[in-house]
Design a protein around this nucleic acid. Structure first.
Length: 474
RNA sequence: GGCCAGUUGGUGAAGUGGCUUAACACACUGCCCUUUCACGGCAGCAUUCACGAGUUCGAAUCUCGUACUGGUCACCA
């Protein structure tokens, strides 16, 4: 049975690439009726911010990437948080020492670092020289029990090469002699990523290891560990990078977290998910819209790409607009209203009015946070004219007449309704011999200050007589 | 610097030797619809697949070299 895992580390909030990776891992498992597991990799620090974890659970939940095993869903392979499995790693590391695949090392960290730096300066590659590699076992053991600080290093083969076939990238071969005797257990007793990752994946029965292609070059190290531990090698599926605007992988790691922002900005989970599915993967046909359920049936891991993908917010916006358009009216209102409330005081506005205003934009907005911006004209006291609009206003002498005439007529309008307002506009048009854009645009600008907006007649009705007159007056 | 990977338009991408004078989508531009604005519809947008050689009757597709981009070489994950 196929079993995959998502194993984020706790050093930062989950971002879009993490989500995409989680999604792919989930899909690979589910398309084969397999299982999806969650594991938290937190061996690099003494603690982690609960916010990071909470956010992670929240995201997996809102995107419906339900895991079958993991924290809060303990099964026989647990615990699923690495800091709670320290004794397991220790046990396996010791086993490797016993079998001669690993050894205790007492070399001073600072000294090694200095040597490494010197080598880098000289543009030479540095490799741990293996000082402790051939210490007699009893002596090493004696020093350990005496309380001396140590790490456990893996004995890398000095000759030969390691190769494997990545599911996405194909054959990868690396010479063993460039590999350093990597550390498995650090002097603080915690395992390194490479070691914990391998032990856990093997113990938890992961059949398909998915990870960023960043690890492509170090996969041989993992492979050698699988072999030394006597575990069966899993299938490796490396995933292409997602590049955000001017970010390389390096500065992305620091802080960038667009996922939380995206959600706060009013991007729908189904839109984000749909878009992300197409970043690094593409279906056989030209179809673009997929729900999670549909992805499970259509996802084909053979079609995962090798080249990195550039994240493009414009396309995401397009997806989001599509999903907003498809929402039921009631859901849309519930979704979008908080954005309005957060910015404007709605006191004195009727529910009917609010609903009408919001519905005006159902087919236009790209994301929720656009609502306050786009409805600005309904709430501002004085209007700002955009440059283009001013230019238009001055482009024809007749425009002033139209606006003045409209104000005059509308002042005496008794029944304030779309139909009657429309009649007025038509009359103005007849009187000054204007039609189309030359008729509507002057009024539109005079009333809203901008050249784009919702249907003019509806807009005027919703604006209300008082406001319209105020804006038209000098 | 050694090693590994990637390179089709502004973006996502299809394409696995002839059906490709390179699909589809986003963005952009123009037109149509609408007496306005959007929505919607239609059209345009890479003589060319990083570059150079080679294999072949024929190459975006296979081979080699060069360039560029990214990654990796840690008691970070």
């Amino acid at each position: 049975m196929t079993k995959t895992r998502f194993s984020p580390n706790t050093s930062g909030f989950m971002d879009i690439e993490d989500l995409r990776n989680a999604l792919f891992a989930y899909l690979i498992a589910k398309q084969d009726n397999g299982e999806f597991l969650l594991r938290i990799e937190d061996t690099n620090q003494n603690g982690y911010s609960m916010d990071v974890l909470e956010f992670l659970f929240h995201i997996l939940d809102t995107f419906h990437l339900t895991y079958d095993e993991g924290p809060k869903k303990e099964k026989e392979n647990g615990p699923y948080i690495q800091s709670k499995r320290l004794d397991i790693y220790k046990k396996y590391a010791e086993k490797l020492v016993k079998r001669g695949y690993a050894y205790y090392c007492f070399c001073d960290e600072a000294t090694l670092n200095k040597k490494r730096l010197d080598a880098t300066d000289k543009k030479e590659s540095f490799k741990y020289d293996g000082t402790c590699r051939n210490f007699p076992k009893d002596e090493a053991l004696r020093r350990v029990t005496a309380g001396e600080s140590y790490v456990i290093r893996e004995k890398m083969p000095e000759v030969g090469q390691t190769s494997y076939r990545d599911f996405v990238y194909g054959d990868v071969t690396v010479e063993n002699n460039i590999l350093e005797d990597q550390i498995l257990i650090k002097s603080n007793g915690r395992p390194t990523y490479n070691f914990a990752n391998v032990v856990d994946d093997a113990l938890m029965g992961i059949t398909h290891v998915t990870r960023e292609c960043v690890f492509l070059a170090t996969t041989n190290k993992s492979l050698l560990l699988y072999d030394a531990l006597g575990f069966q090698r899993p299938e490796f599926i490396h995933l292409p990078l997602i590049l955000t605007k001017n970010s390389t992988k390096r500065n992305k790691r620091k802080n960038e977290n667009n996922l939380m922002d995206l959600l706060n900005q009013g991007f729908l989970p189904e839109a984000i998910l749909n878009y992300l599915a197409l970043l690094g993967w593409s279906p056989k046909d030209t179809r673009e819209f997929f729900t999670l359920e549909e992805l499970i049936h259509n996802f084909d891991s053979k079609r995962i790409h090798t080249r990195p993908a550039q994240y493009d917010i414009k396309k995401l916006e397009w997806f989001n607009r599509h999903y907003i358009k498809e929402m039921k009216e009631a859901n849309y209102l519930k979704f979008v209203r908080p954005f309005l409330e957060a910015t404007y005081n709605l006191e004195g506005k009727t529910e009917e009015w609010i609903k009408k205003v919001l519905l005006l934009y159902k087919n236009n907005i790209c994301f929720g946070a656009e609502i306050p911006l786009i409805t600005h004209m309904f709430f501002q006291n004085t209007i700002d004219f955009e440059d283009k609009a001013v230019t238009f206003l001055n482009s024809d002498a007749n425009i002033k007449n139209i606006v003045l005439q409209f104000r005059k007529e509308i002042k005496h309008l008794e029944i304030w309704k779309e139909e009657t307002i429309k009649e007025v506009i038509e009359q103005v048009g007849k009187k000054w011999n204007a039609m189309g854009k030359m008729l509507y645009m002057p009024i539109r600008i005079a009333v809203s200050g901008v050249m784009h907006g919702p249907n003019l007649v509806t807009m005027i009705e919703l604006l209300g007589k008082d406001t319209v007159l105020k804006r038209l007056g000098e």
